[in-house]
Computed example of a mutant assay.
Amino acid sequence: MKQLIDKLKTEHRLTKEEWITLIENRTPELADYLFVQAREIRHKYYGRDVYIRGLIEFTNYCKNDCFYCGIRKSNGNIPRYRLDEDTILSCCRSGYDMGFRTFVLQGGEDGYYTDERMTHLIHRIKTSFPDCAITLSIGEKPYDSYLEYYNAGADRYLLRHETFNETHYRTLHPPQLSASNRQQCLWNLKEIGYQTGTGFMVGSPHQTAEHLAEDMLFIEKLQPHMVGIGPFIPHHDTVFAGEKAGTLELTLYMLGLLRLMLPKVLLPATTALGTIDTHGRELGILAGANVVMPNLSPRDNRKNYSLYDNKIATGEEAAEGKAKLIRQMESIGYHVVTARGDSLMDV
C-alpha cells in the first residue's frame, strides 16, 4: 500500500482500482505514513501557516429537501432566520478588526436573496473591505447568476458535489436534484473565473469505497482550488436520523490523500471534523489541511444553522473563538495568519 501512496505523491493520480484498493486496505500504520507525506507536501507549499475564514451563516431558509440536512425545507422544528445587510456588514467589521481577510457567506438556497439582493450585498462588502476575499456558498444557481455575483466582487465559491455517483446521489437527495447538474455548476464556476471549491461527505448512507474513488477521480479532473470534506453526521429531524455517522479515521485519511493528489489545494479542517472529535480540527491540520473557518455569525443564530446534530455552536464571542483557535494551532506547531490565503492552484 505504501507504494500506492508514493505513486500518488509523485504522479498525483491513481486509477479507480488503485483508489479502491488504497481506501479499502487502510491501516493505522498506513495512515501514519500517509500523514507524514501529506505534511511534507503541505509544508513545501504553505509552510506552517493556517488560513482563517470568517464564516457568516446568513440564512437557514432553504427550498431544497436533501435527506441528510437539518435545514431542509420540510423540517418544521427549526426556527428560521435571515440576517439583514447591516447585520452581515457588522459581522464583517468585527471579523476584519480581528484580522480576518476572507468572509464566507453561507446559507440555504433561499429565494428571498434574489440576484439583485446578493449583488448589492457583495458590492457593499467589497466596497467596505476591498482587501478581503468574498466566498459564497449558496448552492446551485444559473450560470448568469454566478456571473453577476462574480462581476459584483465575489472571489470564491464553495459547492460540494457531495457524491459523484448519480445513483448514490439519488439516495441522498429528492428527485428534482441531480449529480450531473451540480457538477455542471462547478464547471460553470471555474469557467467564469472563481476560485472554486468542491467536496464530499465521508461515510454518508450507502457510500462505498468505489463511490469515494469516483469522487477522487472527479476532483482530479476538476482541479478545484479548494476541497472541503467532512464526516456525515446525522440530524434527528431527517430521514437519516438513525444512520451511523462517518468516522474521524476515514475523514482524516481522505484529507491526506487529497493533499497528495492536489499539493497546492486549499484544504479546510471543517467544523464537522471538530464536531465528531474535540481535537478534530487539529488532527485535520496534521493530516494535511491548512484552512479553518471560525464562525462570525451572531451567537443567537448559530444553533439554528443546524445542518447536523451537535454542530459546534459555542457561546463564545468570535474574538474568544479565534484566541482559542490560535492556541490550538500553536499547540501542534502551526500558526494562524492574517491573509486572504489565496489558492496556489493556478500558480
Results as ranks from 00 to 15, higher is better:
residue 1 M to D: 06
residue 5 I to W: 00
residue 7 K to I: 05
residue 18 E to I: 08
residue 21 T to Q: 13
residue 21 T to G: 05
residue 22 L to I: 05
residue 27 T to E: 08
residue 27 T to S: 15
residue 29 E to R: 11
residue 29 E to Q: 13
residue 29 E to W: 08
residue 31 A to Y: 01
residue 38 A to C: 11
residue 38 A to G: 13
residue 38 A to R: 04
residue 42 R to F: 03
residue 43 H to N: 14
residue 50 V to W: 06
residue 60 N to E: 02
residue 64 N to V: 00
residue 66 C to N: 07
residue 79 P to K: 15
residue 89 L to K: 15
residue 96 Y to I: 13
residue 100 F to L: 14
residue 100 F to R: 04
residue 102 T to Y: 03
residue 104 V to D: 10
residue 105 L to E: 06
residue 106 Q to W: 00
residue 113 Y to V: 05
residue 116 E to L: 10
residue 117 R to V: 06
residue 119 T to S: 14
residue 128 S to P: 00
residue 134 I to S: 09
residue 134 I to M: 11
residue 136 L to Q: 04
residue 136 L to R: 08
residue 144 D to I: 13
residue 149 Y to R: 11
residue 157 Y to W: 12
residue 162 E to Q: 07
residue 164 F to W: 09
residue 164 F to I: 01
residue 169 Y to V: 04
residue 170 R to M: 06
residue 171 T to L: 13
residue 179 A to H: 05
residue 182 R to N: 04
residue 185 C to G: 04
residue 189 L to F: 06
residue 189 L to Q: 11
residue 190 K to A: 07
residue 191 E to I: 01
residue 194 Y to N: 02
residue 198 T to K: 10
residue 211 H to L: 09
residue 215 D to R: 02
residue 215 D to K: 03
residue 218 F to S: 13
residue 225 H to T: 06
residue 225 H to V: 00
residue 232 F to C: 03
residue 234 P to M: 08
residue 236 H to K: 09
residue 237 D to R: 05
residue 238 T to W: 05
residue 241 A to M: 03
residue 242 G to W: 01
residue 243 E to L: 02
residue 246 G to F: 02
residue 247 T to I: 11
residue 248 L to A: 04
residue 248 L to G: 02
residue 249 E to S: 12
residue 252 L to S: 09
residue 255 L to P: 00
residue 263 P to V: 08
residue 264 K to G: 01
residue 275 T to W: 01
residue 279 H to C: 01
residue 279 H to R: 09
residue 279 H to S: 03
residue 284 G to S: 02
residue 287 A to D: 04
residue 287 A to S: 15
residue 290 N to R: 07
residue 291 V to R: 06
residue 293 M to S: 14
residue 302 R to H: 11
residue 305 Y to L: 07
residue 308 Y to A: 04
residue 310 N to P: 00
residue 312 I to M: 08
residue 315 G to P: 00
residue 332 I to N: 12
residue 334 Y to D: 05
residue 336 V to Q: 05
residue 336 V to W: 08
residue 336 V to I: 15
residue 337 V to S: 04
residue 341 G to I: 02
residue 347 V to W: 02
